[in-house]
Structure formats: structure tokens, C-alpha cells
């Protein structure tokens, strides 16, 4: 098994070419940083203060984009897992690792900002309604996914078992997305795609869109960095194995 993996169609991976960051990466990181600062300006200064919740509503511009972009990144994890099982592509597995980690980071932002917002508005930090519970469960499940990856050997086994687990845990994500639509929750109803009574003032919607753009750019940057690292790690792994076989 090890032999087939090291001696693939392209032959043993070589250490000749040192890994190099592409020239556009600094530019892209710069654009991401600029977008994040612009989002901060929009959320703090440009967007009008909301009527009932006052200044606290401004947390919205980081809380919601972090959650929805996080869910999007978990969807990438699902797609990468399916792709891995269909094609046994190491690149897909690298994307699965990257997306699980980035998603956990984004959902962590959402889960910490939530109670900070809830305390002054609801008077409590946390409540076990469907939306809050499921979001926490999803975060725990993707941490479990990362633990599973650490507990399995770095062979063909690890990506396969991780992909199997990824398919089980993604089930909760669409249910969580629909939770505030299906059930009565303490968590407010959706303002986006939420039916005829939902909606935002144009200036608020613009600030929210900027927030989304910033988080999408951030997620893309982090995904790209982690994805390359995982591929490099795999390359080193193959090298070590080839060496062990040679000796």
C-alpha cells in the first residue's frame, strides 16, 4: 500500500523544488486586511444606530457573517470529503482539513460574540434554544472531526475515515440554518431570506454586505494557506516513507 502511494504516476515526490508562496499572495492578504478594516469602519461609524437595541446591534456585523461564512466553509468541507471518496484525491483531502479548521475558527468567533451580545439584550449569556444548542453542537462535532484526524495514522485510512465522519456531521448544519425558521427560539428571526417581514435599512444592509465580503476574503486567505500546508505535510510524509523503504 505504501509503495503504491509513494510511487504514484508522477514517481516519488522530490525535495528539489522548495515550496514558494505565489507572487499574488501578499496582494490578496493586503486586500483582505483592507476589507476587514473597511468592514470595521462600516460597522462602527457608517452604519446607523439601531432603534431598539442601540449600539449593541453593531455586533451583528461580525456575528452573522462569521456564522454564515463558517457554514459555507463547512459546506466546502462536505464537498471536499465527497470528492475525496469519489476520486481519492489528496488535494481534496487537504481542502477538507483546511475547511474544517477555518470553519471551527469562524464558528468560534460567532459563538463568543453571541453571548457578549445576548447579555445586555436578553439579560442572560446563554440559553438552550434550538439555534444556540445546535451551533454549539456543530462546533463540537468539527472539533471531534479534527481529533479523529489526529487519532488515525497518516495513511490512506485517515482521509477516508475523516470523510465518512464529515458526511455524518454536516447533517446538523442545514438543520441549524433552518432552526430559527422552523421553531420558536430565543434567538431572533432571520433578517436575510426571512420572509416578508424581514429586512434591513439600506445603510445597514450595505455594512452587512461589507462584513460578508471581509469574512469571505479572510476565509479564502486562511483556506489557501492551510491547504498549501497540508499538501506540503503530505509531501514530507511521502519523502520520509520513501526513505524508510529505501533503507
Amino acid at each position: 500500500m505504501k509503495q503504491t502511494e509513494t510511487a504514484g504516476p508522477t514517481g516519488p515526490a522530490s525535495t528539489a523544488a522548495p515550496p514558494q508562496a505565489p507572487p499574488w499572495l501578499p496582494w490578496w492578504a493586503g486586500v483582505t486586511a483592507a476589507l476587514m478594516l473597511y468592514a470595521l469602519y462600516q460597522a462602527w461609524i457608517a452604519a446607523p444606530t439601531e432603534a431598539t437595541m442601540g449600539i449593541y446591534q453593531r455586533i451583528f456585523y461580525v456575528h452573522v457573517p462569521a456564522a454564515l461564512v463558517g457554514f459555507g466553509v463547512f459546506f466546502i468541507n462536505l464537498m471536499a470529503s465527497v470528492w475525496y471518496l469519489a476520486r481519492r484525491s489528496r488535494a481534496a483531502d487537504a481542502m477538507a482539513v483546511a475547511s474544517a479548521e477555518v470553519g471551527v475558527a469562524l464558528l468560534a468567533i460567532n459563538l463568543i460574540t453571541g453571548p457578549i451580545w445576548a447579555k445586555p439584550i436578553w439579560g442572560i449569556w446563554w440559553t438552550w434554544d434550538a439555534r444556540l444548542t445546535l451551533t454549539l453542537v456543530i462546533w463540537i462535532m468539527y472539533v471531534s472531526y479534527l481529533v479523529l484526524r489526529q487519532f488515525t495514522p497518516h495513511s490512506e485510512l485517515q482521509p477516508r475515515l475523516a470523510a465518512a465522519y464529515a458526511m455524518f456531521i454536516f447533517v446538523a448544519v442545514p438543520v441549524d440554518y433552518m432552526a430559527i425558521r422552523w421553531w420558536r427560539t430565543q434567538h431572533p428571526q432571520p433578517v436575510l431570506f426571512g420572509g416578508p417581514h424581514a429586512g434591513l435599512a439600506p445603510a445597514m444592509l450595505y455594512a452587512l454586505c461589507v462584513g460578508f465580503a471581509a469574512y469571505i476574503a479572510l476565509a479564502a486567505t486562511l483556506l489557501r494557506l492551510r491547504y498549501r500546508q497540508e499538501q506540503l505535510r503530505h509531501k514530507i510524509e511521502l519523502q520520509r516513507r520513501a526513505r524508510a523503504l529505501a533503507e
Binding site: 444548542t133 481529533v147 479523529l148 495514522p153 446538523a172
Partner: peptide, 25 residues
């Protein structure tokens, strides 16, 4: 998950770590 963890290191520890989060709902 028992089948999934059968080949992992520390199988006995891994099963609850995999099962409990998914079992919460």
C-alpha cells in the same frame, strides 16, 4: 462510528469522542 474507529489508535477513547457530539440532539 465503532466501525470507523476500529483501526484508529486508542479506539476505546475515540468512540465516545466521535459518538457523543453526534448523539447530543
Amino acid at each position: 462510528f465503532s466501525a470507523l474507529g476500529a483501526h484508529a489508535r486508542q479506539r476505546t477513547l475515540l468512540l465516545p469522542l466521535l459518538l457523543l457530539p453526534v448523539a447530543i440532539p
